[in-house]
């Protein structure tokens, strides 16, 4: 019997129009969403434990992701402080130094400049090192004037190119840039990202397993029901539907719990983190999830729950055959 013949016969028999089929399908979805939620609520402790397991699996990668997000903000702040120092030739006097500074400020790729005259340099030096007497005995100020340059593009490669260009400017003796530590931080952040991604994949699999196992038991408990509805003409989609909704509810519940744990955790860590950041002279705050982040967390957890249920039910449906 071809499908057309079957459905045509069915249609004649039951007078089902495509519209009524569609409404019936929607009705069943609604009924199963409610029914599966009710089944979860009937065993609140068991459901809560499953959701908690999902939440814990989600908190670690999400927390790491958040900290890296924070590190990115810190990175941006450090970029602000990524500067070049151009030491001018010692023979150049204050007026000449001012002209060189203006020339540098006009160069392409330079965002701003600040001139430190030889005298200012000396003062700073004395203040920092406390070598007043020794320095005072020197016949002349041996320090050169310098210009601190903030580049437009903080990218390390671009900064290096800029440094080479500035070294060519007349009056400039030497250009220093100390970006190695910034580079190191970037590499660390990159490492963190990869570790975070790896953890997210592993713990995502963990969520699939948790949901899959729970749904497997639910399928086993409702085996007779599945056999009966299969006998009287239920499609696989019809049989699968309530379990998929259960999985999605578990995922959503786990996501909500994870969201709560993350919010609590970042509140708990906020004070020591900002104190630590302050000791380095940076203002760093753990970022919250925000609207997009929260939506993503809940979306991912719901999807993982649904997917775990789908895998578990499909594996099981193949084994369940009516007696």
């Amino acid at each position: 019997m071809t499908r057309d013949a079957t459905t045509a016969r069915g249609a004649r028999h039951h007078r089902a129009t495509p519209g009524s089929r569609w409404r019936g399908w929607l009705r069943h979805h609604r009924a199963m969403a409610l029914d599966s939620a009710r089944r979860l609520l009937r065993h609140p402790l068991g459901s809560l434990l499953t959701m908690l397991a999902i939440a814990i699996a989600l908190v670690l990668p999400a927390g790491l992701w958040l900290s890296l997000d924070g590190a990115r903000l810190l990175d941006a702040e450090l970029d602000e402080s990524a500067t070049l120092t151009a030491y001018l030739e010692t023979r150049i006097d204050a007026a000449e130094a001012g002209r060189v500074e203006q020339a540098l400020a006009a160069s392409p790729g330079v965002a701003s400049t600040r001139l430190i005259t030889a005298a200012e340099g000396m003062a700073e030096f004395q203040q920092v090192l406390g070598l007043d007497e020794a320095l005072a005995r020197l016949p002349a100020n041996p320090l050169p004037a310098s210009v601190v340059i903030r580049p437009e593009d903080p990218d390390p490669a671009a900064v290096e190119v800029l440094a080479r260009e500035i070294a060519e400017v007349p009056g400039v003796d030497e250009v220093r840039l100390d970006l190695a530590w910034l580079e190191r931080l970037r590499h660390l952040a990159e490492l963190g990202h990869r570790v975070g991604l790896g953890l997210a994949v592993l713990f995502g699999l963990g969520v699939l397993l948790v949901v899959g196992n729970t749904i497997r038991l639910a399928v086993e408990n409702r085996r007779q029901e599945i056999e009966v509805v299969t006998l009287i003409g239920a499609t696989h989609a019809f049989v699968r539907r309530p379990f998929l909704y259960s999985g999605a509810w578990y995922g959503l519940g786990g996501g909500l719990l994870a969201w709560g744990l993350l919010t609590l955790g970042s509140d708990w860590l906020a004070a020591p983190v900002s104190a630590l950041a302050a000791s380095y002279g940076a203002s760093f705050r753990l970022p919250g999830l925000g609207l997009t982040g929260s939506a993503m967390l809940l979306g991912c957890s719901t999807l993982l729950g649904w997917l775990g249920a789908w895998i578990a039910v499909s594996r099981h449906l193949a084994q369940i055959r009516p007696r």
């Binding site: 009966v228 006998l231 009287i232 499609t235």
Partner: peptide, 29 residues
């Protein structure tokens, strides 16, 4: 009039809906 062995698995549920079956052990839920 249709060879039911040639039904595609996805058509089987629709075929079964046209048959009423009564079981010895009722198979009620």
């Amino acid at each position: 009039g249709h060879d039911i062995d040639r039904l595609h698995p996805s058509q089987v549920p629709f075929y079964r809906r046209q048959i009423g079956v009564v079981f010895q052990d009722h198979q009620l839920l």
